[in-house]
Structure formats: structure tokens, C-alpha cells
Design a protein around this nucleic acid. Structure first.
Lengths: 103, 103
DNA sequence: TCATAATATGAACTATTGGTTATATGAATG
DNA sequence: CATTCATATAACCAATAGTTCATATTATGA
């Protein structure tokens, strides 16, 4: 299986899982009820996200608690940078401003 | 077919096409030779990118010249923003700096 | 207008993916 | 221990995606 970040976030349900986890960690059952998906489907998507390094899990009792990885999506962010005109503009402006400040 | 931005950039060859077009417009034949793919495959991927709004084409003689759309990937950029920690940090800093400057 | 160059499209094939149901695993609890 | 709860996995199916080869389309130039 083993998917890259791009393929991992191409699936709407997986994006929904990530968005959900962005507000805090969740166990599988919580995700299942919040996203209204079947439990096996959740487990499958979570496995993909885990293998792609986007989420991490820890075993807490019989629950498995998932959370976002600290630096998720490095490949996607690196690739998409040049296409984020607004963002690169913000970067450039920031650099300029900080430069002229320090002088 | 009609794919969204996420699915469009999930395919490595399509990302390669976009990266290629980032340095300037190209006709199909040029893309074919630069990326070493078959011509029908190029046309198919270009169609996907066109329908997803990532590239535009203009007919120039018997050539079809493709270029990046002006604001490509709005959906992806919007979704990924909150995950781009470094970038949001840059944004925040920029806001602060500009604020304290104007006062 | 005929031949050719550039691109798009269609048909067919294969691989992969997202989804289901059923079952296995493994911890907690009575 | 036996049961139940939480999660993962297996087997399978339908839909879709990527690829190739062959053919259609369209514009150009002789």
C-alpha cells in the first residue's frame, strides 16, 4: 500500500480525518461517529495516514488514540510552495521587512 | 473524468508537467520529449489538468501551447494552509512586524 | 487538394482504490 | 475465565485510474 502524502490527501474522507484531528486527538470510535463512516473503513484510512507519516497512534487501554504528526505533509508543503503565490509573496515581504529593520 | 485539485496533483507525471510549465509555457511535443512520456499520455494528463483548472491552452498554429493557470490550486492551498506551520508562522510574524511599523 | 505534422480521442487492458461484510486479535471487566 | 468492547485485518467487489496502441481531427504547406 504505502502511499505518499499527495495520494494520502487526495481522498476526501482522509482529509476529513485530518481536519478532525487538527482540533485534538481522537480514538477510532470517536472518529467513526463524528465522520459517520464504518469502523473498518476508518481503520483502513488511518492505516494509510499512519504509513504516510501524517498521523501517529498510541495505545491507551483498549483504545487507540490518533493525533496529527508534528510536521505533517513535508513533501506536499515543499512541492506546493512555489505555487502558493500569496504565501511566497508574504515570505518575500517578511524577509525584506526584517532586513530593513535590522539595519 | 473531471478531477479536483487534490487528485490532479496526486499523480507524479502531472506534477512533473506542472513543474515544467512553471518555468514557462510549452507545447505538447516539447513536454513529451522533456518528460519522456508518450504523446497520448501527455494529452490525457493535460486534459485532466485543464479540466481541473490548473493549466490553460491556446492554439498557436498547429501547436497547442500550455501554461499554468494564473491562480492554480486554490482548493489545495486553502485546505493545506492550516497544516503549513512554517507559513502561518511567517504570516503571523509579518502581520506583527507591519503592525508595529505603521504605529 | 494532398501529404504531413501536431494533438486529441477511443477502445481495451491492468492495477489500484474505496468500500463492504465477516472474522481475528487483544485488552478490560464481570 | 468468559464475555464484551475497541480495533485491526482478510476476502472480496465495483469503480476508477493510468497506460498503450490505433485512429480521428485539424492545421499547415507544397
Amino acid at each position: 500500500m504505502i502511499m505518499d502524502g499527495f495520494t494520502a490527501i487526495a481522498e476526501p474522507t482522509r482529509r476529513a480525518i485530518l481536519d478532525c484531528l487538527r482540533t485534538g486527538e481522537r480514538d477510532v470510535t470517536t472518529l467513526v461517529t463524528e465522520l459517520r463512516i464504518s469502523q473498518p473503513l476508518a481503520s483502513k484510512h488511518l492505516r494509510v495516514l499512519r504509513e504516510a507519516g501524517l498521523v501517529e497512534a498510541s495505545v491507551r487501554g483498549k483504545r487507540r488514540v490518533y493525533r496529527l504528526a508534528k510536521e505533517p505533509l513535508p513533501d506536499v508543503l515543499a512541492w506546493i510552495g512555489p505555487y502558493a503565490r500569496q504565501w511566497s509573496i508574504a515570505f518575500d515581504r517578511l524577509e525584506h521587512v526584517l532586513e530593513s529593520e535590522s539595519s
